[in-house]
Write a protein that binds this DNA or RNA. Structure first.
Lengths: 211, 211
DNA sequence: CCATAAAATTGGTGTCACTGCAATTTGGGT
DNA sequence: ACCCAAATTGCAGTGACACCAATTTTATGG
């Protein structure tokens, strides 16, 4: 019932390829590594690489989809009496406290960012992930609040909240890339987050308040 | 002093390539047309195509960059006493009146949208254009209002306004694609625009008011 | 333990966007 | 007519990815 030999080998191969690829990307930059090179280093054929990862970008993104579902969880787990915007404000502040990687507040995000910034293909991929997040959250919002398909509010609320989160991430990352320590960034980041959500709350304040 | 033979031929060649390419894209879809095919149809070499357009997507986007600068103009030409958000509200409403192509409110936008939607490469390209718009408007805002580089407000305001515009475009386009007539969409679109900007105004209302 | 099905891996061949370069054509100024 | 610079071309790559036909591995029922 557990995991057969077959399943285990598959997982191992997949992980080996992803790990080796990531190592090469970090060492040489995404665009300077060919899939053939990854395959050779992982001791498999190019076809096998494409068997596990449908594009070269997937080789890098892999775990990124995990962050896509996070906003939906925040929405669903908001407290009674709490509006949607407030729930996200709380979550972002909490993410700052815990240096959550889903918002790019963790150590190592700068390395990640440097690689991404150096590759147009990866930049494009990140935009795609962001759009995906927006779509998923929009659906969840419309679902949760029973909006009909003509109502733009779920789309607007999702977009504005995620845009806010994205800009806060950018802010933190850019200061990280400038070589600053987290301790020096954190208080400003917190203040920026408060201000950013203050811009949203007067307009979206009551949206989706529970009960 | 006018335009020499050389310049004229260059312009003609460029236009011929772009026109023929667009014709092929409309007939067969972006992904089903190769650059070699475009070159053959335009009676030039593949290298010449790449001499004028640095990527295949540029062959399709070409005039898209004109829409990038529009928001900056709206910002700069806002009336005295008018806030930034109000200026954009006015511009969007005006664009609905005139079926402006820069917001995708014109006839023919549906054809354009159908081609784009069918091609991942073009969808990615449109995302890029949107981000470009955001960057340009952000710079203009920061510039105009003398914000220091640490101030997130220009970024937030630019992003929220352009997001709003984008969703209104999507709304209009999706109903177009469903086969509806403009006359039946227009009043709803206008109402949606009012509501969308109503969400923004309480928070961003006074930002950048003149004088 | 073995035959055999099913899945994983491979090699090969091809397409297409795009690059770099060297050779050639063409328009403009003298 | 002559020369330079820009425009155009051909040619030879490279790298991501698709498609397909072997071939190897693992799982399974007898």
């Amino acid at each position: 019932m557990g995991e057969g030999l077959r399943e285990r080998k598959k997982r191992e191969t997949r992980e080996r390829i992803a790990d080796i690829a990531m190592g090469l990307f970090m060492a040489k930059g995404f665009d300077n590594v060919t899939v053939a090179e990854v395959a050779r280093a992982a001791d498999v054929s190019v076809n096998t690489v494409f068997n596990y990862f449908s594009t070269k970008e997937d080789l890098f993104a892999d775990r990124q989809h995990l962050a896509v579902d996070h906003p939906v969880r925040v929405l669903r787990e908001r407290e009674p009496g709490e509006s949607v915007v407030r729930a996200f404000r709380r979550d972002v502040l909490h993410a700052i406290d815990t240096q959550d990687w889903r918002y790019g507040f963790n150590l190592g995000t700068d390395v990640f960012a440097r690689i991404v910034d150096a590759s147009p293909a990866l930049v494009a991929r990140m935009r795609e992930v962001h759009e995906q997040r927006e779509k998923v959250l929009t659906r969840a919002l419309a679902d949760e609040l029973g909006a009909d398909s003509d109502d733009l509010r779920p789309r607007l609320v999702a977009a504005h909240i995620l845009t806010t989160a994205r800009l806060l991430t950018d802010y933190s990352v850019s200061r990280r890339l400038a070589g600053e320590e987290w301790e020096s960034i954190e208080p400003d980041l917190r203040a920026q987050a408060e201000k950013a959500f203050d811009l949203l709350e007067p307009g979206l304040g009551d949206y989706g308040r529970r009960r």
